[in-house]
Simulated scan of single mutants.
Amino acid sequence: MERVAFMFPGQGAQHIGMGKKIAESCPAAAELFDRANAILGYDLKQLCFEGPSAELDSTAVSQPAIFVTSLACLEKLKADQPGLAERCEMSAGLSLGEYTALVFAGAMSFEDGLRVVQARGRAMQDAADATPSGMASILMLSLEQVQQIRDEAARTGTLEIANYLCPGNLVVSGVNASIEKAIDLAEAANARVVPLAVAGAFHTDIMKPADERLRQALAPANLSSPRIPVVSNVDAKSHTDPQEIKEVLVRQVVSPVRWEDCVKSMLDAGITEFYEIGPGRVLTGLMKRISRKTPCTVINDSQ
């Protein structure tokens, strides 16, 4: 029998109409959106289903939106494929998706998870507003080449490698001047560069004001040991102690996302089949670059 792991997407997967089909066909999914509206104090369901995109794309809204939609997709999977979720042996999520993975693994409730994600999104949006900054994917270059670009561009201001996604796909994050310099250098090296539609330089010290606010939001949350390993973005390891999990989540805001290492950690543990659960299919694309022969099934909100 295949050994299964679930993966959950991060920010950037949002789009107008997300979750609408699933909510219409799966009562348990529809209930999540209603519960979310009550917790958040605004109509997240309407923003997901109808937009406007300017509001949905804001970090403060997109993070709760992706979190809730991903869990709605999970409810759809449970209804369509009974028993599959119980067979899942490991889980991970990209940045924001780590919270979805922890809720799936029973480490925190939907309500606590959503409240923390709401606070995280607001804190990261405020940190981004305070320092004009951004992120860009650099494709088709080696790690060594991107490190050289990072070192040179950082002379103009803060710049870090924020996401180690897969071979040939690294994301740099920093102040606007350094991002512009990095783009010029990468293009001169024949790389393909994709500026990301995010509010600021996530997973760098530019987010430093947000980590303490996240710590405060996590303090009252009731965490328990996950029933299955959840692989952390920060160190590609699973953690069982609730207080340790909180500390790792705080560190995640200002630390690089080591997604390739997370996937390799699950593969090394014997996982043979992955499911990407949530809007979009970014993680499936990354999987093809990390382990092309490993099957990855998408369970998203367009089905």
Score class of each variant (00 low, 15 high):
M1P: 13
M1K: 13
E2L: 02
R3V: 12
V4E: 01
A5N: 07
A5F: 11
M7E: 00
G10H: 03
Q11S: 09
H15W: 05
G17E: 11
M18C: 04
G19A: 05
G19Y: 00
G19P: 00
K21Q: 11
I22L: 03
S25F: 01
P27T: 10
A28E: 15
A29T: 01
E31C: 10
F33I: 08
D34M: 06
N37C: 05
K45N: 12
L47R: 03
F49G: 12
E50P: 10
G51C: 09
P52L: 13
S53L: 15
L56V: 11
S58P: 08
S62M: 13
Q63E: 09
T69E: 03
T69F: 03
L71G: 01
A72K: 00
A72G: 12
L74P: 02
G83K: 08
E89Q: 15
S91N: 10
G97W: 01
T100V: 14
A101C: 12
V103E: 02
V103F: 09
F104A: 05
A105W: 02
F110W: 11
E111G: 07
V116R: 06
V117H: 08
A119M: 12
R120T: 06
A123F: 13
M124I: 14
D126L: 13
A127R: 04
D129P: 03
D129M: 12
D129W: 04
P132T: 15
P132Q: 13
G134Q: 03
M135W: 14
S137P: 15
L139W: 03
L141K: 00
L143G: 08
V146W: 00
Q148G: 02
A153Y: 04
L159K: 01
L159G: 00
E160D: 14
Y164P: 02
V172Q: 00
S173V: 15
G174L: 15
A177I: 14
E180R: 12
A182N: 08
D184G: 08
A186C: 09
A188Q: 12
A188F: 04
R192W: 06
R192Y: 10
L196I: 10
A199W: 02
A199L: 07
A201D: 05
H203R: 04
D205G: 07
D211S: 13
R213M: 15
L214E: 06
L214C: 09
A217S: 05
L218Y: 02
L223C: 06
V230A: 06
S232E: 06
N233D: 08
N233Q: 07
A236P: 08
S238Q: 09
S238H: 15
H239M: 08
D241H: 07
P242T: 07
Q243N: 14
Q243P: 09
I245K: 01
I245A: 04
E247F: 05
L249I: 11
V250W: 10
V250A: 12
V253W: 00
V253I: 14
V257F: 00
W259R: 01
V263N: 00
K264E: 13
A269Y: 09
I271V: 15
E273G: 02
G280Q: 06
L283R: 04
L283C: 08
L283G: 06
G285F: 05
R289G: 03
S291I: 02
T294D: 12
P295M: 11
P295A: 12
V298I: 13
V298A: 09
I299R: 10
N300E: 13
D301Q: 02
